[in-house]
Amino acid sequence: MSRLVGIVLVALAALLGAPARAHKPSDSYLTLAVDGERIEGHWDIALRDLDFAIGLDADGDGRLTWGEVRAHHADIAAYASARLAVQSDGQPCTLAIGEQLVDRHTDGAYSVLPLQVTCPRAPERLGLSYRLFADLDPQHRGLLQLQAQGLTRTAILGPQAPTQTFVLTEASRWRQFLDYGREGVWHIWIGYDHILFLLSLLLPAVLAWRDARWRPAEGFREGLLDVVRIVTSFTVAHSITLSLATLGVISLPSRWVESAIAASVVLAALNNLFPVFHGRRWMVAFGFGLIHGFGFASVLADLGLPQGALLLALVGFNLGVEVGQLAIVSVFLPIAFGLRRSWFYRRLVFVGGSVAIVLVAGIWLVERAFNLQVF
């Protein structure tokens, strides 16, 4: 039992230590197209991140002008090129950065760096070493879209996976499916708002609402069935909106979606403290799952959708999300069931955890709804 307590303490500490800003972290977008020994593409890097890293705001007025950005083109190119390396079958390739442009993404202005890569030979195994902002932001991600052999691959680069190798001669639909599935798993594991929403629904799964209070569930089967209903409802709901948004049937502003996701986490955790849907939490999971599906769709769009394999990418990513969710459930549920009768679980984990989730998600809601940075 003491070992279980230690595990849950570590999990709770990790939850409370999650960054206050979530779901729209520091991202860059790296697009590469392989054509023999030559590789061309572009690298979109947020100007706000570059300003923090090398200082672009010359007059310190808090606003970046085109003149300030253009004056630092050489600095931006040098900073970026020193943090990206390309290898062809283990041999280094030469990277050249052209004259930058500026483009806008949903979260602000980006410097667009044209890339030309020359390799000793046409690569069969393409290696990428990515270290952008690794010393400044451990949550930074590089969203890669790699076009080769007539197929589009995707990957997430960053401090957790700075070096990756792509076997271009093994390009296949099955490999493409697995790539998107892997990104779905990874997105759940780094999507703190989705994790906290899921945990808010899982915390009461080993308890039962009787006599106007939460009491320990009698058996594991009762809690397991509750979790199955919740996860199934959430899965069906976000699959619907993920598909509709990805196919372009419905489109909502990113700011609305991210704010609504934060609100869903707050309300789900508050329902633990002041139960309203204690017997119908699957309905809460379904209703808010529709909103979370739009959030998943924005990530899938950022990764780049191959038009020739749209359904393959959609199904692979969605299944990856489910695998990531089931991994969290399989770890959490047995531990929670073993501790459900203890004061530690009922007071510290259940009540204290729900309060902590409300506070963290409340900060996200304020930041997203009013475009502020609280911390």
Rank of each mutant, 00 (worst) to 15 (best):
T246N: 06
S129N: 09
P92E: 03
L326C: 03
V265F: 04
W209N: 10
S354K: 04
L30F: 07
G36D: 08
Q373G: 13
E218R: 13
T235S: 15
R83H: 14
G55R: 09
F220D: 03
L311M: 08
E218G: 15
V117S: 06
P123L: 09
L290C: 12
A53V: 08
V117N: 05
G308V: 03
A78R: 13
P159Q: 12
S264M: 06
Q116N: 11
A33R: 15
D211R: 14
L32Q: 11
D51F: 07
W186I: 15
Q160I: 13
V34N: 11
A148V: 12
D103F: 00
L143V: 12
A22M: 04
L198C: 06
L201Y: 08
R38L: 12
V331T: 10
A77I: 01
V10H: 02
G127F: 02
I261G: 04
E258V: 04
W174D: 13
G98C: 00
G55Q: 06
A269W: 02
R153I: 05
E99G: 06
Q91V: 01
I328K: 02
S342E: 13
S88E: 01
A309P: 00
V266L: 08
L95A: 03
L50C: 07
A96F: 00
Y110F: 14
F375Y: 14
R21S: 12
Y345I: 04
Y110W: 04
V167P: 00
R131M: 01
G6R: 11
E68F: 05
F370D: 11
N272Y: 02
L225R: 14
G191F: 07
V206H: 09
Y110G: 03
T154S: 15
L303C: 08
A297C: 07
L144E: 10
H187N: 13
L207W: 07
R340M: 09
G352W: 08
I328D: 05
V86T: 02
P123V: 06
L303G: 08
V257F: 10
A22S: 14
L290N: 10
L196R: 05
Y130C: 08
N371A: 15
A46T: 07
P92I: 01
I291W: 01
L95P: 02
L84E: 09
L201P: 08
H73L: 05
G17Q: 12
S342D: 14
G67W: 01
A96D: 12
